[in-house]
Design a protein around this nucleic acid. Structure first.
Lengths: 335, 335
DNA sequence: CTGAAAGCGCTTACAG
DNA sequence: CTGAAAGCGCTTACAG
């Protein structure tokens, strides 16, 4: 492979001059620039990224820290990764995948190995152990997910609060006065302010404002449990016939259970939900839903990280991406 | 951050000696080694990966080339990525994500930028444009997916042939004499020998051997089309009541259509399928199936690539990972 | 067994 | 506007 020296020789200039046209940080006369560019083309030269990184102390690489095998139930993960990589490349950054089971360790190694200029932590939860080494080191990072205390690190997430508001509004506007709130298992709400809590709080607040009665239905983990729970509540005549769902597993299972029971949407039951676009595509779901905007979130994350790199001392950002409602007429108009 | 020079000074030795203990390629007396290790611990020194890469001309990084936004219907992609990253790390390699829309361009840039020692191409199909720049350069690579002509590049894939055989055997052993072969759209079989063709060929061959009549049902692309096609064939009394499925979209949709028609498995219809474990988990599918073994495939890919790096001139490998059948009693015994 | 020196391929002040 | 020199943090023959 040709080096900058080969190009310099070929063009009859010094290596510094070649470097000047490579980086574009210095004026070079059009003639010598042309000669250099011809040499580059002729030799098929391409800069050695590693050498440049060593000289500039910038790797132009971001690390994406994936949580311990979360792929288990996360059809959106691949979308996030691709979206992050695309957004990074657009800004001149490559992307490294860090999947170590011990997330905190992955972060520490990434920082000390100096392989990346910044870190993107995916799916951050309250009390996430990966925050520890980042907070300590002050390493440029961005969180995808919004814990109460971001430890002085920029963070971006879907605005779960307004997602809840939108769904409640949609149901209320159709004239419904009560709905089941099909939600995550109780444990998820214990760990402080997670996205689940934010969704829940807004849902109840808005429901109160709109005169909608919310009947909570916590759904346990596991396919059979999900199925059984849904079966039970859907057959209970005392339960509302409208479902407001914030639980991917429940949404995915719902069509099966409805099928089992011979129930139709929206004739027999009305359904609105918050779930990822990937889930909808995979399951061919046709419920009115708030999409989780993974691409927008990914782009915002990269943007925040670039901004942080450019201005290390700028104030910490907490950015919420506003979702939008996708209508699928799964709510019967009652008004 | 401490450098090797700091460590050397702290330990009272030369940088070469520190390097010797770092690389482990030279004997160092236990005493000086201990001193050096103490210095490393004290200074929290960690080798600068980039500098080492420049000196050794080895980046210890693999690039994973993802095809143009295949995430669209690929719940398995994330699993592959995580499995590849894990397998690579186990062997001392980091992993870079290359998602450029133009796959061939991504390959070219990765090679010329010297950011990676080897490339892993995901989801390779017949006539894949990414093969071109690899074949030309002879850059160490491995394909996940098995085109007829791998252009002299190592490749690994699920053994679709034996997958088909296993499914046919399973159905035939239960006494079935005919089955619908629910497959991909015809176009997919045109492009030469893809995984679909390999599956198909083996299915027919084995079916002939076992006296099973196979009725092909090509399923067009798109949720509505899939649904309509399944509806039609499931209602056609002339069609076999046994389904051998090799089409993720059809498998995913099947429970819905069966529900619509009030059909039960295995009472009314028998079903076997080839689909990814992720799909099964997402959809809570309960059909006897051959799993796509993404983790085993990922591990084999990394292994092949490492072997290639170690022995550049070793013979080209084509490795097929044998799948295994997961029983879910979705086939009614007729014998 | 340890160290001085050269080199990996770049960039960046600093002269001219 | 261009070039010579030093330096980024490592490793690796080569002496001793």
């Amino acid at each position: 492979m040709a080096t900058i020296g080969d190009v310099a020789r070929e063009a009859g200039v010094s290596r510094s001059t070649v470097s000047s046209v490579l980086t574009g940080r210095k004026y070079v006369t059009p003639e010598t620039r042309a000669r250099i560019e011809a040499a580059i083309a002729k030799l098929e030269y391409s800069v050695n990224t590693g050498a440049r990184a060593l000289a500039t102390a910038k790797t132009m690489t971001f690390g994406i820290v994936v949580r311990f095998h979360e792929a288990e139930f996360s059809p959106a993960l691949a979308t996030y990764l691709v979206a992050l990589s695309d957004a990074a490349r657009e800004r001149g950054y490559a992307v490294m995948l860090l999947t170590e089971a011990d997330g905190a360790e992955a972060v520490r190694r990434a920082i000390s190995g100096r392989q990346v200029d910044g870190l993107i932590l995916l799916n951050v939860v309250e009390g996430d152990p990966r925050l520890e080494p980042i907070g300590q080191s002050g390493f440029p990072s961005v969180l995808v997910g919004m814990p109460e205390d971001t430890r002085g690190v920029d963070a971006v997430d879907l605005d779960f609060g307004s997602a809840a508001t939108m769904l409640v509004d949609h149901v209320a506007a159709a004239g419904h006065r009560e709905a089941m709130f099909v939600r995550w298992p109780d444990e998820l709400y214990k760990g402080g302010s997670t996205y689940a809590t934010r969704f829940e709080r807004s849902a109840y607040r808005r429901a109160a404002e709109r005169g909608l009665r919310l009947v909570p239905v916590p759904v346990p983990v596991g396919p059979e449990q999900v199925r059984a729970t849904l079966r039970t509540v859907l057959q209970d005549p005392a339960k509302p016939r409208t479902l407001l769902i914030h639980n991917d597993a429940a949404v995915a299972m719902l069509p099966f259970v409805l099928g089992d029971l011979g129930l139709e949407v929206p004739a027999d039951r009305s359904v609105v939900s918050l779930h990822s676009a990937e889930l909808a595509r995979l399951y061919v779901l046709s419920y009115t839903a708030v999409e989780s905007e993974s691409t927008a979130v990914a782009q915002a994350a990269v943007e925040l990280l670039c901004r942080r790199l450019a201005a290390p001392d700028s104030p910490v950002q907490r950015q919420l991406v506003t979702p939008h409602l996708e209508e699928k007429s799964s709510v019967a108009p009652l008004a």
